[in-house]
Each structure stands twice: as structure tokens, then as C-alpha cells.
Amino acid sequence: MIHRAFQRIWTGIALFALTIIVAVIGYIALGWTFSDAVYMVVITIFGVGYGEVEPLDTTAERIFTIFVIVAGTSSVIYIVGGFVQMVTEGELNRAFDTQRKSRTIAKLNDHVIVCGFGRIGRVLAQQLDEAKQAFIVLDNNPERVAMAETRGYLVHTGSASDEACLQDVGIERAKFLATVLPDDATNVFITLTAHELNPELLILARGESITTEKKLRLAGADHVVLPSSVSGHRIANLITQPTALDVLAQNNERTALNELLTQIDLQMEELEVKKNSRLLGRTIGEVEVRAKGAFIVVALRQLDGETINRPGVSLSLNVGDVLVLLGHEGAIAKFAHRYQYQSELSYQGGPV
């Protein structure tokens, strides 16, 4: 519709320009000068009404002037009509889209509310879509909203911490709510608000810090997901299988694995213990304590080539040991810099 309106505007402009050219040439052909012809065309088409530049004595002059008035006025009206059509249809389309979306949301029942369309939110929405589970995405970021709409998801623009927005997406009829924002405080507030609006709602909340889990459960979360912990256990289980060691040894498989982990803001990397490292002689447990939840140790590759899966917390680090770490992107580099370990940070063929 909008395309047709633009086409109409450009057609009107072309007709208007053609009318002016033909009118000027016509008056010149009737014996007028170029300046008189242009002036006559302007005051005639725009209806200024200053009077004729020269007397219109002949029938041909009068008929031609009538043609100029009709053609010029019609082309202007056509152009204005195109603009009106463009504005009207654009507003109507937005109104119809809003009304359609409202009707769809009103029909939702036992659906899932996904609060936040970040990396985890996108993975979650994709899985729900593939499972044919009814869901709606709630986000206040225009770029993320546009991205969700492009993928064909039902989206509502607004803050998930706002009661009115939660009511707009049918929280009283929803079965699940998943708040997967990267900010713990916001997830706690959303959990608390959602639980008050619908005590029967099953709430799944994302937590960045282990200490947040208790707060989320007190706020009303039925399940708390700590991406680093969940993924750590999963990767550790994979490592205990023989095929998992092959995955860690092949660059193309490591890249694919990291791409998967990146979707949930995680990265698996190798960190070698150098002879001047401050971590030399420390235990695995001490390393994880100093990391403060930034990453976990899923494996240890010793200098002699032996790989220890899920190493014990009492195991000490020696020169040449390589730690296989799973944590948030950039967390290992920050940890290394903090403990004067940046210069000794090395990756075995790049990130694992």
C-alpha cells in the first residue's frame, strides 16, 4: 500500500512537470516571450489571479489556458492525494497491526512469557517456537523488539518490571514466565512482581551469581538457572566421555562448541600455568574461590599429557598445567589481569 502511494506521488510530480513544460512551449508558440510564458503558467496553475500577462483574444489561447488550469490543478491534487494516502494507510496499517496483536494476546492461554530477548532469550524463544509452544516476548529495547518481530514472534514492547506490561501480555492466564535478563536485581524484581500478580504462575529465573539464587527463590521463583553452573555440569559430563576428549582436541569442533556457548554468554578457554604465575602451587579450590563465580574448572591437563576430568578441589597446580575453564566471556582475562597473570595468559590454538 505504501509503495502504491509513493508511485502515485512520483506520477503526479511527473505530470505536473510535463504540464509546466507543455504550457510554456504552448504560450511561446502563441507568440509570447519566454518570461511572459513562464509567469503566465505559474499564476494560472497556482491560481494566484493577478490577471493575464497579455490579453487572451483568440479562442485557441483561451482553450489552451483552460487546458493548463485543468492539467496543473489535477496533477497537484494527484500529488496531494498520494501524500494523504501514504499517511492514512501507514496509520491504518499500524492501527490494524496493534489491534491484531491485541486480539492475539487476548486469546493466549497457558502460554509462556519470555522477559528479555538477549542471547538466552533468543535461544529460549527459538526452542519454544520449534516445540509449537505459545509464547510472547516482552522487551523494551527497540532493536531487540524488531529482531523478534523479524523472526515472526509475538512481541510486546514494554518493561517486564512494570505491572501494566505484564498484565498486557496476559500474565493472569500464563502458565510460565521466564525472566532471562542479564541483571540479577531486575530478575528478582520481575519475579516478585509476577508472583504477586499470579501466584499460580511457574517462574523460571536466570541468575548471574550463585548468591542470587536464594533471593530469586524468596521472591517466588520456582526454578533458578545459573548458566555457568548448568553449562559447567553439562560440559563436565561430556568430558567424562571418550568422544568429548576428541572434541577438545579438534579446532573446528572447539569453534562450534564455543559458538554454542556464546549464545548463553559463556566461553570455554584453556589457561596455562607458567613458572612465574601467582597461581603456581594453588589448589583448584583456591582458584575457583578467587574467581568468585566468574568461571569454573572443568578439566586439568597436566604437563605429561594426562587429562583429569572434574579435578578435585585439593589438587595443586604445577608448572605446565593447563586449566580448562568455563565462564562468562572476558571473565578469564579479567581474572588474569587482576592477579598479574595477563602476560602469562596463553591459549592452546585459540579459545577452546
Results as ranks from 00 to 15, higher is better:
Met1Trp: 04
Phe6Pro: 08
Gln7His: 08
Arg8Ser: 11
Thr11Asp: 02
Phe16Glu: 02
Ala17Tyr: 04
Thr19Phe: 06
Ala23Asp: 04
Leu30Ile: 00
Ala37Tyr: 05
Val41Asp: 01
Val42Cys: 12
Ile45Val: 14
Val48Tyr: 03
Val53Asp: 00
Asp57Asn: 15
Ile63Ala: 07
Ile66Pro: 02
Phe67Cys: 04
Ile69Leu: 14
Val70Ala: 07
Thr73Ile: 15
Val80Ala: 10
Glu89Cys: 08
Gly90Thr: 13
Glu91Ser: 10
Ala95Tyr: 15
Thr104Asp: 11
Lys107Asp: 02
Ile113Trp: 01
Phe117Tyr: 14
Gly118Asn: 04
Ile120Lys: 12
Arg122Met: 12
Ala125Ser: 14
Gln127Cys: 05
Ala131Ser: 15
Lys132Ala: 07
Ile136Lys: 01
Ile136Arg: 00
Leu138Ile: 09
Asn140Asp: 03
Val145Asn: 04
Thr150Ser: 09
Val155Ile: 09
Thr157His: 03
Ser159His: 13
Ser159Glu: 02
Ala164His: 11
Leu166Ala: 12
Asp168Thr: 15
Val169Gln: 08
Leu177Thr: 07
Thr179Met: 01
Val188Pro: 08
Val188Lys: 02
Thr191Tyr: 10
Leu192Ile: 01
His195Met: 09
His195Thr: 14
Asn198Asp: 05
Glu200Asn: 15
Leu201Met: 03
Arg206Asp: 08
Glu208Asn: 15
Ser209Phe: 14
Lys214His: 14
Arg217Phe: 08
Leu226Lys: 13
Ser228His: 13
Ser231Lys: 05
Ser231His: 03
Ala236Gln: 04
Thr240Gly: 11
Thr243Glu: 03
Ala244Trp: 04
Asn252Met: 05
Gln263Thr: 15
Leu266Tyr: 06
Glu269Cys: 11
Glu270Cys: 12
Gly281Trp: 12
Thr283His: 04
Val289Glu: 07
Val297Lys: 00
Leu300Asp: 00
Arg301Asp: 00
Asp304Lys: 07
Asn318Ser: 10
Val319Glu: 04
Gly320Cys: 08
His328Asn: 13
Ala331Thr: 05
Ala331Glu: 01
Ala333Leu: 06
Arg338Met: 09
Ser346Leu: 05
Gln348Arg: 12
Gln348Phe: 12
